[in-house]
Design a protein around this nucleic acid. Structure first.
Lengths: 123, 123
DNA sequence: GAGATGTGTCAGAAATCTTTGACAGGTGCG
DNA sequence: CGCACCTGTCAAAGATTTCTGACACATCTC
């Protein structure tokens, strides 16, 4: 079975991944969860961070598709949300960035082209 | 000549790269400069963005080591700063992130906040 | 000199992201 | 019931990032 090359991610998706990973706390969260999956409260204690804050970071990572959380019921009936990292893979080169940049649906686009060229000096 | 495997970047370096790339404008700047090098003012017109703003973005990209700028004197004597992308290559996987996370010198580190650790064992 | 080009920087507004503390559930146990 | 866990959300404060409009300086051309 030949290794299939990773599909090119859309600009917005890659943007989410990069901004999600570009944060020391979230990087550490990925590191902690890579070693072994864990539930929110325990993870919060492990890396010394408040639950609400960790919750938000996990949400950001999950939105980027880097981790997944599943709500499981323990034997004693308590509900705990376990998080684990997804086996992601991204290659960052000028080429991949260029390719991704072409498909960005951020703000501003419909009304803009070659009209605001010599506008700043015109005062 | 065998291809040398890319060296593992330090946590702080990777952090800079990721947060630099995790921005739509900077991604487009990389895309534009990948096609051909350019000087600040022309690039600003090309992607429709104010010079001061572009200047700041280029600074961020250069600090991350993704682009380099060289001040050159044109034939007519005008000084123009040409920017071009560096052939960077980063592999993003749970493993590389974990490895990088171990070497982060961001805020909080000198004194590990391990004070409420006695309670978590009470499971 | 005026005008067009290039460079750079600065201060403050605007928009975002990060962080904290309080609250509102739920379960099982002594 | 009260305590010890778990889950989640919210509002407001705090810290950063992003963006804009001046400003200053240089060169070449008219």
């Amino acid at each position: 079975m030949p290794e299939v090359p990773p599909p090119a991610p859309t600009g917005d998706a890659l943007l989410k991944v990069l901004s999600a990973l570009g944060n020391p706390h979230r990087m550490r969260i990925i590191a902690a969860l890579t070693e072994n999956r864990n539930y929110v409260s325990a993870l919060a204690r492990e890396i010394g961070m408040g639950r609400p804050l960790l919750h938000m970071h996990l949400q950001r990572l999950e939105a980027a598709g880097l981790v997944v959380g599943t709500l499981e019921l323990a034997e004693d009936g308590k509900a705990m949300k376990y998080f684990e990292v997804t086996p992601f893979f991204y290659e960052l080169t000028p080429h991949t960035i260029t390719r991704a940049a072409a498909t960005i649906t951020e703000k501003a686009d419909p009304a803009e082209r070659a009209d605001r060229t010599a506008k700043e000096e015109a005062k």
